[in-house]
């Protein structure tokens, strides 16, 4: 199962689902990371974490750990 944390720089993907068991899952859904939406990995910080994803025209920096509940 691939998640947003496995994306390569510049890679696009469509969200399949959000893992409900992750404590940040609800907040991620609320800010627009919903199934069917396209995400792009735009940037990685030093040590490759956090990562910058584009969603619905906005860029969000989230930790890899949080990205791992975005199933693609």
């Amino acid at each position: 199962m691939r998640t947003a944390s496995d994306l390569k720089l510049g890679e696009k993907a469509v969200i399949k689902d959000i893992d409900n068991t992750h404590p940040s899952s609800h907040r991620l859904l609320e800010i627009g990371f919903t199934p069917g939406q396209e995400i792009v990995l735009l940037t990685k910080s030093i040590f490759n974490d956090p990562i910058g994803l584009s969603i619905r025209g906005t860029i969000f920096a989230i930790r890899k750990n949080e990205a791992s509940c975005i199933i693609i």
Partner: peptide, 9 residues
């Protein structure tokens, strides 16, 4: 509580 970093750029 669990740590989190979600920040709009």
């Amino acid at each position: 509580d669990s740590s989190s970093f979600i920040l709009e750029l």
